[in-house]
């Protein structure tokens, strides 16, 4: 007791105490958006578990989700950089399909799959570079430029491939396949790649000067320019980063489903779901601030809604209703945090 009193009367202790309390407050304040996304996710999962504990306490559903979720996670993380820099990219799903086409065509021709993967990533990065140049050099609005790029790539892939699928079954169970989408026990390897992508994105965003520049550029363009940040390069690199992710996600997608088909799935729905993940995660559209971990949680939230709705006994038609509901709830909660 006497010790405690002595400590409390010590100015160094008081200063240290204030500093640590302020540190906690600042941590909560700086991460409130990601934390609120996490709370929304936890509540949603609790509801799923309560309604259908048989399914949601069974590892099989998680195994299934962890096969396709990584593709979205890889796509969503770099999008945070673009949104924080106050731009948008709507061409990323088309870019992913384009990269996959490059990968599938070259792999089918008998090239080394690692080289094919490198080509796919370079192709994705090249499209990202063009997007960046259209925005920062030509001065087009990113929304318009990337919508243009989206249609251009859809047309190019459809025209170039004649909408003929390319099966990739010859890659199944090869070392290349096992490295990227194999299994360790019951665990999908692609989830490890998703976590690696998450760590890289968090390091870049929170600890690298690239992330710092992206935030400053999105926050105050003029000031950033005056302080010596190369605004054009920063924005272009953000688009290139999205392109690289598209290349990698394209390869993951090709290996997961062992086929290339230009009209596979619903590209526009995937685009909206991934973009929604960014905003559910707590990255606002105004630029300057964002959260990588939040986007990761956002991607998990959307993916679990899609699966969970069916498992709790509703028809698939309800999926979009609940996606919309969660998006609105998450955005309202972010707004509430902001006003506080």
């Amino acid at each position: 007791m006497a010790d405690l009193e002595k400590k409390q009367n010590n100015p160094d202790f008081n200063q240290e105490f204030r500093r640590s309390r302020r540190g906690i407050i600042n941590f909560l304040n700086n991460n409130r958006r990601a934390l609120s996304a996490l709370i929304v996710f936890i509540i949603m999962m609790l509801i799923f578990i309560i309604v259908n504990p048989k399914i949601f306490l069974n590892r099989e559903i998680y195994e299934a989700i962890f096969r396709s979720l990584p593709i979205r996670i890889v796509l969503v993380l770099p999008l945070v950089f673009v949104v924080v820099s106050k731009e948008i990219d709507l061409s990323f799903v088309s870019n992913m399909t384009f990269s996959l086409w490059i990968f599938a065509a070259t792999a089918k021709a008998g090239w080394n799959p690692f080289l094919c993967m490198l080509l796919a990533i370079l192709a994705g990065a090249f499209i990202g570079l063009i997007n960046g140049m259209l925005v920062v050099r030509i001065g087009l609005q990113s929304m318009m430029a990337t919508i243009g790029m989206k249609f251009l790539l859809v047309g190019l892939v459809a025209g170039g491939s004649n909408i003929i699928p390319i099966p990739l079954t010859f890659l199944a169970n090869t070392p290349f396949y096992n490295i990227f989408v194999g299994k360790i026990g019951n665990f999908s390897v692609q989830m490890i790649w998703a976590v690696i992508a998450l760590v890289i994105a968090m390091l870049l965003f929170n600890y690298h000067k690239f992330g710092s520049h992206v935030s400053c550029v999105g926050d105050n363009l003029e000031s950033s320019r005056e302080m010596g940040i190369n605004v054009a390069t920063t924005k272009t690199l953000a688009f290139v980063y999205v392109g690289i992710a598209c290349g990698f996600a394209g390869v993951l997608s090709g290996l997961t489903y062992l086929t290339f088909y230009p009209k596979l799935g619903s590209p526009d729905e995937l685009m909206l779901a991934v973009l929604a993940s960014v905003f559910i995660g707590g990255t606002p559209t105004k630029g300057g601030v964002g959260t990588i971990f939040g986007a990761f949680i956002g991607a998990c939230t959307i993916k679990f809604i899609e699966t969970g709705i069916i498992q709790v006994g509703l028809t698939g038609f309800w999926t979009q209703f609940f996606e919309g509901l969660i998006i609105l709830l998450a955005l309202t909660s972010h707004k509430f945090h902001k006003s506080n």
Binding site: S215, C216, D219, N220, E222, S223, S224, E226, G288, V289
Partner: peptide
């Protein structure tokens, strides 16, 4: 400059 010196959210 008074009005454009800082990135307010950083």
């Amino acid at each position: 400059y008074q009005d454009r010196a800082l990135a307010m959210q950083q």
